[in-house]
Design a protein around this nucleic acid. Sequence first.
DNA 1: CATTGCTCCTCTAGTCGCTAGAGGATGTAG
DNA 2: CTACATCCTCTAGCGACTAGAGGAGCAATG
Lengths: 141, 141
Amino acid sequence: MGEKVSIGEASRRCGVKVPTIRYYEQIGLLPAPPRTEANRRTFDPGYLRRLAFIRHARELGFEIDAIRTLLTLQDDPHQPCATADAIARARFAEVEQRIDSLNALKAELGVMIESCRHGKVGDCRVIEVLADHSQCTRPHH
Amino acid sequence: MGEKVSIGEASRRCGVKVPTIRYYEQIGLLPAPPRTEANRRTFDPGYLRRLAFIRHARELGFEIDAIRTLLTLQDDPHQPCATADAIARARFAEVEQRIDSLNALKAELGVMIESCRHGKVGDCRVIEVLADHSQCTRPHH
DNA sequence: CATTGCTCCTCTAGTCGCTAGAGGATGTAG
DNA sequence: CTACATCCTCTAGCGACTAGAGGAGCAATG
């Protein structure tokens, strides 16, 4: 079944851009794949799985370094998964925090936009609120 | 009242780090302030207001380029504020989107963490879900 | 067989918004 | 007078890519 594919095909299948794949190889997140006689990279199914793993983890906002750790964990299935769990939990906390602060932001922006009466800049609440932090409803930041 | 202050004082008052102030000057977001005889920058109250404006806008997530526009708008109070309004609305939409996608992410991470039974990596749901996108509850990304 | 056009290769440099550090001059307190 | 803080300029680095130059190979059509 699984045969070797070109970098373009790997890109299409995994949803990772060609230069990004090369970049991952360059920084050592992925090993250098074997080449054809014409010096082109060839990707086997295992490699594609790793690539898809990375893509998914990146979408979930994990940093490259965290992914590096997760990948090495994945390679040794007998290790306890406490590390993987900790990484996921840390990311969860980050995301929660980020949501909170974005919600505060959204409220702030909402007030700004609401109270803009679309006149001249001189009376614009958007500009005014930006100019004066003390007008913020909450000390969100 | 308003007298001229040093870069360190400006930094303290506006909550913008010293190198960042110099950086803003370098990229032309702020004008080059006058200097003392000993070549030190001096900041007057008007400059400090601009700096505070920038800081607040950055906290609200506006990009430097947007801030550049907002600053020039601020300088001409007779212009209609439609542009400022549009910038704020665009940012609002961005924030909303970001919140949505972070909520999806949070759910995903929550499921991962919940179903990790803290055994070996080989059975770890965290690793497993990352490796297989199709296990995601929703096609959030 | 030749040409066209796509994919691939390497390499360097750019993006954004800072941040860090070197190396040196000046200001302030004890 | 001597510390030490603050200031100056300049260059380089961060993360995670992205863009572009310049060149080679491969597949399909005429």
